[in-house]
Design a protein around this nucleic acid. Structure first.
Length: 120
DNA sequence: CCACTGACGAGTG
DNA sequence: GCACTCGCCAGTG
């Protein structure tokens, strides 16, 4: 088999997203990092955007940092589906509509403040 | 090959 | 808390 020219990065990220336990959520940066791209959180979102219809990937378990549903910005209707699915799995939300990562975070290890380059 | 894009993340103002 | 900027990197035209 030829190696899939397009989406090698996607496949890795999708594979990770698929491993998210039911009832828990992971962030885009999280799945990207687990897929081998610790410094490419955008790939997480990009990969989700490129998800083919009917894929077995539980994309609804992937949220933005802080448990926010960034999808709402693009497809509010689809975002509602995401929320309903999560609630159906027992995920709770804050009054503001954010997932309680303290309770449902897949791996809540927070790599203490990304050591970013000084911009000063 | 070059330019632009983007379901992000974190910092600064 | 909101708006803007930079970084990071694969995919697409």
């Amino acid at each position: 088999m030829k190696k899939p020219a397009a989406g090698e990065a996607y496949l890795r990220i999708w594979a990770v997203a698929r491993r998210i336990p039911r009832g828990r959520v992971a962030t885009y940066g999280q799945i990207a990092a687990l897929a081998g791209y610790p410094h490419a959180p955008r790939l997480g979102g990009y990969a989700m955007y490129a998800l083919p219809p009917g894929s077995p990937i539980p994309w609804h378990r992937v949220v933005a940092a802080g448990g926010r549903l960034s999808l709402a910005r693009l497809d509010p209707e689809n975002a509602l589906t995401q929320r309903l699915r999560l609630e159906a799995e027992g995920v709770t939300f804050d009054p503001r509509g954010r997932v309680r990562m303290e309770r449902h975070g897949w791996k809540r290890d927070r790599p203490a403040a990304t050591p970013r380059r000084s911009r000063s």
